[in-house]
Amino acid sequence: MLEEFKKFISRGNVIDLAVGIIIGSAFTAIVTSLVNDILMPPLGFVMGGIDFSDYFLNLSGGDYANLAAAKEAGAATVNYGLFINAVIRFFIVAWAVFILVKQVNRFHTKKAAEPAAPSKQEVLLEEIRDLLKQQSRAP
């Protein structure tokens, strides 16, 4: 069983997957910062000072100034503002992955090879074949 595990773990696909997960988690941190620290503040400013991360629906009936206060009080909340941020993050990640895959595919795409011109020997053999066909048909 140990040998089988060694074979499994040393296969290229497993290593590629592990590298992809590590890079993906680092990329997620970058995208999270991009959304929270760069995109959302100007978007909130344009929309009149809106901060999506503080949008929540209080299910416990109390009145709280922001989400942090509601969480501190232990109130049950539906945090739809955080969900909006997560959706925006998802679309940014999806777009970045699309662009990345598109660029990688551009480098891997190979033009269809044009058929090579027949060599002199092939042309000569075709001429001989055609002449033999003509002679066999002649009475």
Rank of each mutant, 00 (worst) to 15 (best):
P42K: 05
L39Q: 00
K111Y: 07
I84T: 02
P115A: 15
F91G: 05
G12Q: 09
N13Q: 10
A68I: 04
V93Y: 08
I38Q: 09
F52P: 01
M40P: 02
F98Q: 07
A70R: 01
V123Q: 13
L100Y: 15
F90Y: 13
F90S: 10
T77G: 11
L82D: 02
A138H: 11
N13W: 10
D130L: 12
T77P: 08
A96E: 00
W95M: 15
E127N: 11
V46T: 10
V31E: 03
I38S: 11
I15K: 14
V104H: 08
N36C: 05
G81V: 01
E114L: 14
I38C: 08
S60L: 06
Y64C: 07
A116R: 09
V35A: 03
G48E: 00
G12I: 08
R129I: 10
S25Q: 11
E127D: 10
V19Q: 08
G81T: 00
I92C: 12
K102N: 14
L43T: 04
L67G: 03
V31D: 02
S60D: 08
G49D: 01
A138E: 14
V31I: 15
P115V: 15
E126I: 10
R137H: 13
I88R: 01
P139A: 13
S60W: 03
R11D: 13
A75M: 07
A69P: 07
V104G: 11
I84H: 01
S119E: 05
V97K: 09
V35C: 03
K110P: 07
Q135S: 12
M40K: 03
Y80W: 10
P41F: 03
V87H: 00
S119C: 07
L82Q: 13
Q134T: 14
A75S: 13
I88W: 03
V46E: 03
P115N: 12
A86H: 02
I88D: 02
E127L: 12
G61E: 01
L124C: 07
M47I: 06
A116M: 11
A76Y: 09
A113K: 10
G12V: 08
N36K: 09
A96W: 01
F45D: 11
L132W: 09
M40N: 03
S60V: 04
F91H: 03
R129G: 11
I30D: 03
A94C: 07
A86G: 12
V31P: 04
I15W: 10
I99N: 06
F45T: 14
W95D: 11
I15M: 11
K120Q: 09
I23E: 00
G62Y: 01
N58P: 06
F83K: 04
L132R: 13
F90D: 03
N58V: 04
G74C: 09
S33R: 09
F90M: 12
F90E: 02
G20Y: 06
I23V: 14
I38Y: 12
F45P: 02
E72S: 15
Q103F: 13
P41V: 04
N79A: 12
A73R: 04
L100E: 03
S33Y: 09
V46N: 04
A26Q: 08
K120H: 05
